[in-house]
Design a protein around this nucleic acid. Structure first.
Lengths: 103, 103
DNA sequence: GTTATTGTTAACACTATGGTTAACAGTGTG
DNA sequence: CACACTGTTAACCATAGTGTTAACAATAAC
């Protein structure tokens, strides 16, 4: 989870994810929009992989990357669960009003 | 956005958010579950504040912290938007089938 | 007015990020 | 074979993150 949020905490990597959300891309394509060197691209993609957000298939000398939704889903669920603290409070209040005998 | 995901990229801070999702807490209460020093707690809370996830009200010598859902919502929306690349692909395909004249 | 409590600031160490350049491995292409 | 292309590794630099201890500010309590 640390790795996922860490991977998302960088505008360049979010840009790469944005690109990948439109379909697979090569390392070169992922790095092109950003004014960074090739090793920098390698590192960013490596972090995305480490977080499980991206998988890679090597085809000749070209590496094709694609997005993996699962860790994003987990991160989203975590946020959603903890974001709804207010609704949660309302729910607990409602429970008290509706079913005062429970618990 | 960087600050929000960065704030979430640490288990200690996620624990603090978890605690705050159950209601306001003091700095001491936020730090107690973790085996870290007081300055470390101060820094973590400061990062949560910097990300806009937490607001603080000083009452005497005690600082009361509470969660602010807005940045969490934005982060969640970003993920959701980019997580649905597959559904998005299906949607675009459907659009092509339904309205081939558009675009 | 001491003394305890709550929290912050300052100074330091260690590690990780994000970037660079230079050199290299592997794969196509003339 | 020589050359260009794609991407990685190695070595380095600067900055930021995570933690510490020690000292301090401010408030509460005796």
């Amino acid at each position: 989870m640390d790795a996922v949020f860490m991977a998302l905490a960088d505008a360049t990597r979010r840009g790469m994810i944005h690109r990948l959300s439109e379909g697979p891309a090569t390392i070169g394509e992922l790095g092109r929009p950003f004014a960074i060197s090739k090793p920098a691209v390698t590192k960013h993609v490596k972090m995305l992989e480490r977080a499980g957000l991206v998988t890679r298939r090597k085809d000749g000398r070209v590496h094709h990357c694609k997005l993996n939704a699962k860790p994003m889903k987990e991160a989203e669920d975590w946020i959603e669960k903890h974001r709804k603290f207010w609704e949660g409070s309302l729910d607990r209040l409602a429970s008290l009003l509706d079913e005062p005998e429970r618990e």
